[in-house]
Amino acid sequence: MALIILAHPTFDKSIASRTIIEELKNSNTDMELRNIHELYPDYKIDEKAEQEALLRHKTIVFQYPFYWYNMPAILKHWFDVVFEHQFAYGSQGDKLKGRNFVPSFTVGSSQSSYTALGFQHFRVYEFCKQLEQTAYHTQMNYIDPIYFYGTSLAAGYTEEEIKANAKQHAKKLIQKLAELG
């Protein structure tokens, strides 16, 4: 069974993330979904409840929108609180050892903007090094991120395009979860 940590501050307005989660729910994927914005609107994260959820699962998926080249603030805060010393790292902090760490996110801009010559100047995977290091530091198995571009209506993408791409994203994620068992 997989744990999905959903971190979208405006999930109810999101076309891409809502579609991905709907597809996951409608699949045969055995999963637990934790919408941390819904659980902790005040950002007062219950680290013990979150750690217990992590311990119940072999694969943890972090589902979020790619904001300002990073994760939303609540997910960063979640990591700061939940991945604590002697739980996630330290001399006795091996509780996450061997679990799968799967970043899954959406990117508003186009793929062409995330090139050395593009508007963003770097490729998306270059912004994921902190995720890889977090997995490494906590002895988790880092799985290459699953993501797609073009999720912003403001950037000229249509709702139909976004939904179609989100469904493809969900299909890749479901396949990866099946592979990971």
Results as ranks from 00 to 15, higher is better:
residue 72 P to N: 09
residue 130 Q to K: 14
residue 146 I to C: 13
residue 94 D to P: 05
residue 49 A to H: 10
residue 104 S to M: 07
residue 149 Y to A: 01
residue 63 Q to E: 04
residue 13 K to D: 10
residue 57 H to Q: 03
residue 151 T to P: 01
residue 33 L to P: 00
residue 167 K to D: 03
residue 161 E to S: 10
residue 47 E to Y: 11
residue 77 H to Q: 05
residue 147 Y to G: 08
residue 61 V to K: 02
residue 64 Y to E: 05
residue 104 S to H: 10
residue 174 I to Q: 06
residue 74 I to M: 09
residue 176 K to A: 10
residue 173 L to K: 06
residue 170 A to V: 03
residue 67 Y to F: 15
residue 155 A to K: 13
residue 137 H to P: 00
residue 1 M to W: 02
residue 150 G to P: 03
residue 112 S to Q: 12
residue 122 F to G: 00
residue 96 L to A: 05
residue 107 V to Q: 08
residue 172 K to Y: 12
residue 51 Q to T: 01
residue 66 F to A: 07
residue 61 V to G: 01
residue 56 R to P: 00
residue 53 A to Q: 08
residue 35 N to A: 03
residue 148 F to S: 14
residue 93 G to N: 03
residue 10 T to P: 00
residue 156 G to M: 06
residue 81 V to Q: 07
residue 13 K to C: 13
residue 109 S to M: 13
residue 111 Q to C: 11
residue 139 Q to G: 04
residue 174 I to L: 11
residue 89 Y to P: 00
residue 41 P to H: 10
residue 114 Y to P: 04
residue 117 L to G: 15
residue 56 R to A: 13
residue 72 P to S: 09
residue 84 E to C: 11
residue 163 K to E: 12
residue 42 D to C: 09
residue 170 A to L: 05
residue 78 W to I: 01
residue 143 I to L: 07
residue 34 R to G: 05
residue 108 G to Y: 10
residue 143 I to C: 09
residue 174 I to M: 09
residue 138 T to F: 11
residue 13 K to V: 02
residue 122 F to A: 02
residue 21 I to K: 10
residue 75 L to G: 01
residue 65 P to S: 09
residue 41 P to G: 07
residue 133 Q to D: 09
residue 177 L to F: 09
residue 130 Q to G: 07
residue 73 A to H: 04
residue 150 G to D: 00
residue 56 R to N: 14
residue 96 L to R: 02
residue 13 K to L: 12
residue 175 Q to H: 13
residue 9 P to L: 07
residue 23 E to I: 00
residue 68 W to A: 09
residue 113 S to L: 15
residue 132 E to F: 02
residue 110 S to G: 13
residue 167 K to I: 15
residue 138 T to Q: 09
residue 34 R to K: 12
residue 126 E to V: 11
